[in-house]
Design a protein around this nucleic acid. Structure first.
Length: 291
DNA sequence: CGTTACACCTGAGGGC
DNA sequence: TGCCCTCAGGTGTAAC
């Protein structure tokens, strides 16, 4: 689910509820590839720490600790990061659903998908990381150490320029949409906002990258930014799993023009929105507006 | 190197 | 109701 806007909304809403609080206990599920840092060492290094800053790079969140360590978080496809008063820590709910409705967060019970739960010395709400498909990631970066995943990221999508895209695009024959999804070129754009940005820029997703002009690259980057900034304003897209840290839904799914709108009329020209697969990702566009 | 196919995992929804 | 299929906001890796 989460692309740059959802991660940014999560960062903004989580920060005031997390910063400055001392971690008193850490609960996790069993070791799995979800934990790039094994649960045992995660607990060791987190306990007693205070998160002093919460940053974002592309789709990653970086929680900076007073110890100098950095907790690296990625929400994958179904990650949910929120705060709640967890009831009955040892009582595991049997419900296994991918999406957790906002009203369920109020009376949240940790279940088998609740992979990380931070408790605090103030005894107030826990910070919870829940992820059904476990495509999300948690890693504790020891002070001063870098991470290959972060090192590989290109310029953040909100800071990118058309020139950044054009420089990469002119050397590549892959579809332009594939480049937009390449986190090593521009970091933060995912499947929804690639489709929505290309629609706003009126460029067909399948166009060979090396045949997209510099002007079009300008338009594409500006359109992606406009769409993502608007999504941040509305709290992100809550299509299946995404919830805000406060338990609310985002609003951007109601403003989508093409994503998951196959067969429905284009809001500009009325033509039927087309869906086709590009680079193993579902892709949506208007066959008349986008050339 | 760039590009593509596939794997990782769980749940929802549709067709029969 | 159950089974089997496809689909899902991502990304790392292997193979051409």
């Amino acid at each position: 689910m989460p692309e740059l806007p959802e991660v940014e909304v999560t960062r903004r809403e989580l920060a005031p509820r997390l910063l400055g609080r001392r971690i008193s206990a850490v609960h996790t599920t069993a070791p799995s590839y979800f934990f790039l840092t094994p649960p045992a060492s995660l607990k060791r290094r987190l306990k007693g720490c205070v998160v002093v800053d919460l940053r974002r790079r592309g789709k990653y969140l970086l929680a900076c600790l007073d110890s100098g360590d950095v907790l690296l978080l990625h929400l994958g496809m179904t990650g949910q990061l929120f705060t709640a008063k967890a009831r009955s820590p040892r009582l595991l709910s049997a419900t296994a659903r991918s999406s957790l409705a906002p009203e369920q967060i109020a009376g949240f019970k940790p279940d088998r998908h609740t992979h990380l739960r931070l408790c605090f010395a103030d005894g107030d709400e826990d910070v919870i990381f829940r992820d059904v498909r476990k495509f999300g990631k948690v890693r504790l970066l020891p002070s001063g150490q870098s991470d290959p995943r972060l090192d590989k990221l290109g310029v953040d999508a909100l800071e990118a320029t058309g020139a950044d895209l054009f420089a990469a695009a002119s050397k590549r024959r892959a579809p332009i949409k594939t480049l937009l999804l390449d986190q090593g070129v521009i970091a933060g754009i995912g499947n929804i906002y690639a489709d929505e940005g290309l629609f706003l820029a009126r460029v067909r997703p399948s166009r060979r990258a090396d045949r997209v002009s510099a002007d079009e690259c300008d338009r594409i980057v500006q359109s992606c930014q406009a769409v993502m900034l608007r999504s941040i304003e509305t709290g992100g897209s809550s299509i299946a799993d995404y919830v805000r840290p406060t338990g609310g839904d985002g609003g951007y799914q109601d403003e989508r023009k093409v994503y998951a709108r196959e067969g429905l009329p284009c809001p500009i020209c009325g033509a039927r929105i087309v869906r086709r697969v590009l680079g193993q990702r579902s892709t949506h566009y208007c066959p008349r507006c986008q050339r």
